[in-house]
Deep mutational scan, measured.
Amino acid sequence: SPEVQIAILTEQINNLNEHLRVHKKDHHSRRGLLKMVGKRRRLLAYLRNKDVARYREIVEKLG
C-alpha cells in the first residue's frame, strides 16, 4: 500500500540524513536521497488525489 511505502521511504530518508551529517562529501548517497524524496513526494501526491483521509492520517503519523 502507498502508506507502507511512504513509511519505509521516510525511515530510509531519516537514516540517510544522519549518514550525510557525518559524511558531508558523500554525493553518491545524496543523489540517492534526492531520488527517495522525489519518490515519496509522488506517492504522497497519489494518495492525496485518491483518498484525502488516508493522506491526512499518514502525514499526521509521520510528521
Rank of each mutant, 00 (worst) to 15 (best):
Y55I: 02
I6D: 01
R56V: 08
V52I: 14
L34R: 10
L44R: 01
E18D: 08
K25M: 11
V59H: 02
N15G: 08
I8A: 09
K35G: 05
L62R: 02
Y55T: 01
V59W: 06
P2D: 05
K35S: 10
R48L: 09
R48T: 01
E3R: 01
P2E: 13
R40L: 13
A53P: 05
Y55P: 01
V22K: 12
G32T: 15
M36F: 04
I58R: 00
V4T: 09
I58V: 09
A53C: 10
E18W: 06
V37Y: 13
G63Y: 14
G38F: 12
V22M: 08
L34D: 05
Y55D: 01
K25Q: 11
R40K: 03
I8W: 15
R56K: 11
M36L: 15
H23N: 11
E57W: 05
D51Q: 02
K35R: 12
Y46T: 10
Y46I: 13
R42N: 05
G63V: 13
L20R: 02
K50R: 10
Q12A: 11
I6L: 03
D26I: 03
G38E: 15
R40H: 02
E3K: 02
Y46R: 07
R40F: 10
Y55N: 02
L62I: 11
Q5I: 12
V59Q: 03
S1K: 08
R48K: 12
I13W: 01
T10I: 11
R56C: 13
L33E: 00
K50T: 15
V22H: 12
G63T: 12
E57G: 03
K24N: 08
L9Y: 03
K25L: 12
E11C: 13
E11D: 07
I58L: 10
I8L: 12
A7P: 02
V4Q: 12
R30A: 07
Y55M: 01
K39M: 12
G63N: 13
E11A: 09
H19S: 05
K39L: 14
Y46G: 06
R42P: 00
R54K: 14
S1H: 07
R42K: 13
L62A: 03
H19R: 06
H28S: 14
A45P: 15
H27R: 09
H23Q: 05
R40N: 01
G38Q: 13
K25R: 10
H28I: 12
E18L: 11
K25E: 15
D26Q: 03
E18S: 08
L20Q: 01
R56H: 12
K50M: 14
I6S: 00
Q12E: 06
R31T: 08
L47H: 00
M36R: 06
V4H: 12
L62E: 01
I8N: 06
Y55G: 01
L33I: 06
K24G: 11
T10D: 02
H23T: 04
L47F: 02
K50G: 03
K50P: 01
N14D: 06
D26T: 05
I13Y: 00
L47R: 00
L9W: 03
E11W: 09
H19A: 05
K35Q: 11
I8S: 06
I6V: 03
V22L: 14
N14R: 09
L43W: 04
R48C: 09
H23V: 03
R31S: 07
R31A: 11
E18Y: 06
Y46N: 11
L16F: 05
G38P: 00
L20M: 05
H23F: 07
D51G: 02
P2L: 15
E18M: 08
K35N: 09
N15P: 00
L44W: 03
P2V: 15
E57K: 07
R41L: 13
R40I: 15
K50F: 13
K39G: 02
V37M: 13
G38Y: 14
E3D: 05
R42W: 07
E3V: 05
K61F: 09
R42C: 11
R41W: 11
R54S: 09
P2I: 15
R21T: 06
V37G: 01
R42V: 09
E3A: 06
R41N: 14
V59N: 02
A53E: 14
N15C: 14
N17G: 06
E11N: 07
R40D: 01
L47G: 00
V59P: 01
N14G: 05
E60M: 10
R41Y: 10
E3W: 07
R56M: 14
D51S: 04
R21D: 03
A45I: 09
H19C: 07
H27I: 12
M36Y: 06
I6A: 00
H27F: 14
L44Q: 00
I8H: 08
L44N: 00
N14A: 07
Q5C: 11
K39Q: 15
R21N: 06
H23A: 05
N49I: 13
I8R: 09
G32I: 15
G32Q: 15
S29P: 03
E11R: 08
K25F: 13
V4F: 11
R48E: 05
H27Y: 12
V37E: 07
R40V: 14
R54V: 08
L43G: 01
A7R: 08
I6T: 00
N17M: 15
L9D: 00
G63H: 13
Y55E: 02
R56G: 04
L44E: 00
L9V: 02
N15S: 12
Q5H: 05
L9K: 00
Y46C: 09
G32N: 15
A45G: 06
N14H: 08
R48W: 10
K50N: 12
A53V: 10
R31H: 08
L62F: 06
R30V: 09
I13V: 01
K50A: 10
R30F: 10
Q5V: 10
R48Q: 06
A7T: 10
L43S: 00
A7H: 07
L9E: 01
Y55C: 03
Y46L: 10
P2R: 04
L9R: 01
V22E: 08
L62N: 02
A53F: 08
H28V: 14
R54P: 01
N49M: 12
L34A: 10
I8C: 10
K61M: 13
L20E: 01
R30H: 11
A53D: 12
H19D: 04
A7V: 08
G32H: 15
I8F: 12
Q12I: 13
A53M: 10
K35E: 13
L33W: 05
R41S: 11
V22D: 11
S1M: 07
H19T: 04
L33Y: 08
S29A: 15
L62H: 03
L20C: 05
L43T: 00
A7Y: 15
R31P: 04
L33D: 00
N14M: 08
D51W: 03
V37A: 04
E57S: 06
H27W: 13
V37P: 00
S29F: 08
Y55F: 09
E18Q: 09
